[in-house]
Design a protein around this nucleic acid. Structure first.
Lengths: 181, 181
DNA sequence: CCCTTTTCACCTAGGTGGTAAGAT
DNA sequence: ATCTTACCACCTAGGTGAAAAGGG
């Protein structure tokens, strides 16, 4: 996954379906991203290989709160919950920024997690009560953070499916927007 | 103010500064728009004149909740609170739409209001307790809703100040984006 | 040498008033 | 006749990977 100073959207983005909530209760749905393994990685000879230990000194662990939060169980269960605007960055100074971005380190492998947090009566998140937070981890969503693409298969997958990368598609017919349109 | 089926942003938009809130308390800040007078209006001979009674049968009174809501007093007092994305519509079927738009009737005069709503312990708005809702009305924000501009002074004011109308400005230099740029 | 940052052309997405056609 | 709607060119705003420049 590409990370930049200004923040880059995760793509493909996380999208989940939830069930079993209390329709009238209020919840926050948040995503965080944790280290998936203790290694530093590099791309060599067309493959990802480990290369020493991960930098574990930076354990920022920022969370991204879904923009619909807080909301009722009925709202969250009504349709898929997508995180299309979640941004990843390597800029540690982004903490001061009001827009929430998740801070990662390049060439480390990560595991996103989705948390469903029931909001208690006082309006705060009661994270001290384990019954009120449920955490879901999907191993298939793991990725390695990079500042420039290493694996051309990944690059092509993004170009093929991300609407903002349409201009890079091989079969894109530029004549529609061409000189004498 | 222009209203359309798909919704048109109010411009210039409402922007307020609040003080005196409890920094740790949670509040919603919402805007509604009420009839400013009991008349139907028309533009005739270069002036707005009354023309019969207002249609009072449609009292939809939708509210627009500021996207930062709910939030703490500290958040709301930190900077100006702007409603730049509030949309006006004449489409009564917009109720089904999930995006909240305020429904108005063309050729009626309106008065926007700003409400500061303290959220009670249960997380709901306690609108039954008058001490927890404060309403602010600024008479200078009154306007007449239209589906096409009648008063050219208003049109020119919008063109001069709305960034999205830049292309209609007399002094706009098209050579920058011209044929051989 | 390897990784990161900056800049760019090119795209998506959507907010403007003008204009002409449509509706009553 | 008067008001509303649909469509348009033109703009703002910002998300893409490529490529070149920067840094240790």
């Amino acid at each position: 996954m590409l990370i930049t100073k200004q923040g880059r959207r995760m793509f493909p983005f996380l999208s989940v379906i939830v069930a079993g909530l209390d329709p009238t209760c209020h919840y926050n749905i948040v995503v965080d991203v944790i280290l998936a393994d203790p290694n530093h990685w590099r791309f060599q000879g067309g493959k990802w290989v480990t290369c020493g230990k991960a930098d574990t000194d930076v354990t920022d662990n920022r969370v991204y709160t879904h923009p619909d939060s807080p909301n009722t169980g009925a709202h969250w269960m009504r349709q898929e919950i997508s995180f299309g605007k979640l941004k990843l960055t390597n800029n540690k100074g982004a903490s001061s920024n009001s827009t929430q971005m998740i801070i990662l380190q390049s060439l480390h492998k990560y595991q996103p997690r989705v948390h469903v947090i029931e909001i208690n009566k006082s309006g705060d998140e009661d994270t001290s009560d384990p019954d009120r937070v449920q955490t879901f981890t999907f191993p298939e969503t793991q990725f390695i953070a990079v500042t420039a693409y290493q694996n051309t298969d990944i690059t092509q997958l993004k170009i093929d499916h991300n609407p903002f990368a349409k201009g890079f598609r091989d079969n894109y017919d530029k004549s529609y927007s061409g000189s004498d349109a």
